[in-house]
Amino acid sequence: MKKYNYIVSVLMMVLSGYILFETGTYEIGQSAQKNPAVWPRFLAIALIVLSVVLIIETIFSHDPEMENFSIDWKGPGMKKVYMMFGFTIGFVIVMKILGMLIALLLLIPAIEWLMGCRSRVMLIALPVGLVAFVYVFFGIIMKLTLPGPFWA
């Protein structure tokens, strides 16, 4: 965890630096109410202080849990999550082209398969049932216009 704590601290400092830079471009009035930068700057400074505290805490910590903690970025579980990221990006692209219902029809069985489902019946029945529910509940009962295909 020590390595990740250092990375987190640096990332938070970079974020704080950006906030301080961005708020430097704002037009600032005389009072606090006319100063849109005062609050974000205060938060950015607090974040820098906390980042420093986290670094110091990590350096001086002898907690065995912190010493031994590691994340297996290449483990089978993580690979499933990376695949899910891919499915999510795919879903967004398909939704833009073919609409939400068709995108869901593809996403749901993909997640089922990812979770270890190999039953053909469930790989078909669950997406069809869920998409039918979404269509009836949102499209018909709530009269919500779901994102459709690009040609519609």
Binding site: F91, M100, L104, L107, I108, P109, I111, E112, M115, G116, C117, M122, L126, P127, L130, V134, F138, L146
Partner: peptide, 15 residues
């Protein structure tokens, strides 16, 4: 089972 619950959760998150 989670293999059915997760797709339902994701669908409801999106819709």
């Amino acid at each position: 089972p989670n293999k059915y619950l997760v797709p339902v959760i994701v669908t409801f998150c999106i819709t």
